[in-house]
Design a protein around this nucleic acid. Structure first.
Lengths: 164, 164
DNA sequence: GGCATTATTGAAAAAGAATGTCAATTCCTA
DNA sequence: TAGGAATTGACATTCTTTTTCAATAATGCC
């Protein structure tokens, strides 16, 4: 996979802002573009450390913010309160099915939604940069577990005579 | 608006779990059911304080978690890292068009998306509790402003002969 | 190439939010 | 109403995000 276009876009943003293209920024951007999926600051920091242990967490943090400003990254939130970052490329998708019980995340993709999103952007006169689309619910196994717990609670608490 | 059904559901959950129905829990649930929209712990706490200043933040926090467990509340995250809670009623919509430049938020609603969401939940065997759907982009006026700034940046650096 | 200026870095501290602790209080059952 | 368990609320702790600031590195100028 070639990420030249991303690097160029970042470079261009950096110089337009009158900022310096430093080795740290290059390495962090590199890691970001090559590490698919949505990851926390900590996870990116670990990866960056492998590349160059001298780079600090603060710099990773700031560079991720910078990538967001440049429109190349997106900060997304599931339900655990930890910020995650992922590629905000127009062909990357941010549709997730999140289990509120166990935290499991399934990536989903439906071209119809993409199509409608573009329609809506046109309707409201927006230049679409990305989106976050999280469906929250309870996955099958957690639903089953909750069901069992509910039954145990009924059965254990007091022998229920009444129905419903 | 009558929230009896919600209160009953909460009551039922409380007793099913073998928990006590306390005055605090009743007041907090009351505030939650009557305070429309998505609010942070702090905001709910303020409201509860008005009702009963003796109730502590911890109890509000715990009761909101309880409401989530009961499937009556949902914890949602925008992009500021603060957890917000809102009614997990099936008819609540969370679709927003957000301008990343000026922060303007337009509420959107498209029944086709709702329909697809239910389809997807079925496909992945999830019990849907709610969703967050944010489209991020640049609104028309901000896009125009950014365009001007880009041109000024070009013009300022070196006298540009070419037209964009 | 060397120097001054300015931006950037990274360790540590601060700020902020979420969660845990525990003695005091309240609630439920008998 | 008494006993035992659950709950409460002030505070402490943990965890993440953000700021601070002295040291360092990059850029432009000569």
């Amino acid at each position: 996979m070639d990420n030249t276009a991303f690097h160029n876009a970042f470079q261009e943003f950096i110089s337009r802002k009158g900022m310096n293209a430093t080795a740290q920024r290059r390495i962090i951007a590199e890691v970001f573009f090559r590490f698919p999926g949505h990851h926390s600051l900590e996870e990116f920091y670990q990866r960056v450390q492998q590349q160059d242990p001298s780079i600090g967490q603060t710099t990773v943090y700031r560079t991720l913010k910078l990538l967001c400003e440049a429109g190349l990254a997106m900060e997304i939130h599931f339900s655990d309160g930890i910020a995650r970052y992922e590629l905000a490329a127009s062909d990357s998708h941010h549709d997730h099915m999140v289990c509120v019980a166990c935290g499991r995340v399934i990536e989903i993709y439906d071209p119809r939604i993409e199509k409608i999103q573009h329609e809506l952007a046109r309707k409201y006169d927006f230049l679409l940069r990305g989106h976050v689309h999280n469906l929250y619910g309870v996955c099958a196994s957690c639903a089953a577990r909750e069901q069992r717990e509910r039954q145990r609670a009924d059965g254990g608490g007091l022998p229920a005579e009444k129905e419903g």
